[in-house]
């Protein structure tokens, strides 16, 4: 079902499929938009941005099981032994040449996804202090509970900011210390390898279409307050 991509010689090879890259950069834009719209009290826009992030998260969950090998959780989430082994190589001043997420990056991905899931879920139930602006599911909780969710919503955003800072610090570390640009592959999809070119199995595009349909349906349903 999956199209295997192999390159015989050393050089460039595709590592990130288009859906994974689109997910990443749309997420960057939408998190920024969510932040700005909340700071400037554009709550209608804030809700729409939140629904879009929710859709992206649903898609990423689907793609983590049905996507290309570098996007699958089973492909990048490693155990403590492998993670520790990778940590020992961190001090070497040369590119790690990981195919997709390295074991530490995998932890970062899981933490970011967890923070985003909390952020969106709490936002769905949040109520503002006036009882005017609220998430689409706040109608199922009382005012005090909705206020508590609003507090959690804010706390999880602060956690997300810390994780983003850590993410950027790691990119800077790889770029400066290990002379490895991790941003370019996330933009272009491919990177260069000096050693053996690894094999990445890419998922067909129709499967991404299924993921998008599921994501849009889920976001729409939640935005409607689970009333069809």
């Amino acid at each position: 079902m999956t199209a295997a991509e192999t390159s015989p010689s050393s050089g460039r090879a595709r590592v990130w499929d288009l859906p994974t890259r689109l997910f990443h950069w749309l997420l960057v834009v939408l998190v920024a938009l969510s932040w700005w719209s909340a700071e400037t009290h554009r709550m209608e826009l804030h809700r729409y941005a939140g629904y879009a992030v929710l859709g992206l998260l649903v898609f990423r969950g689907f793609w983590g099981f049905a996507g290309s090998s570098t996007a699958r959780f089973s492909g990048f989430v490693k155990g403590p032994a492998a993670t520790l082994a990778y940590v020992r190589t961190l001090s070497k001043r040369k590119p790690s040449e990981s195919v997709g997420h390295n074991p530490l990056g995998a932890l970062s991905v899981l933490a970011l996804l967890a923070a985003l899931i909390c952020l969106v879920t709490f936002g769905l139930f949040a109520v503002d202090i006036d009882g005017l602006e609220s998430g689409p599911l706040s109608q199922y909780v009382d005012f005090d509970t909705g206020r508590a969710f609003a507090e959690l919503h804010e706390t999880s955003f602060n956690v997300l900011l810390v994780l983003i800072a850590l993410h950027l610090a790691a990119l800077a570390f790889y770029l400066v210390y290990k002379r490895e640009n991790l941003v370019r592959p996330m933009v272009l999809g491919w990177r260069t390898f000096t050693g053996a070119i690894p094999e990445v199995r890419f998922a067909p595009i129709w499967r991404a279409v299924i993921g998008v349909v599921i994501a849009v349906a889920a976001a729409w349903l939640v935005a409607k307050g689970l009333r069809i």
Binding site: V127, I129, G131, L132, S134, P136, Q139, D144, R147
Partner: peptide, 19 residues
């Protein structure tokens, strides 16, 4: 008192979301 004011407004806004 403000909490009651907010909770009452929430009640209205919740109702307005219903069919």
């Amino acid at each position: 008192n403000f909490k009651q004011l907010g909770a009452s407004f929430k009640t209205i806004n919740d109702e307005l979301k219903k069919d």
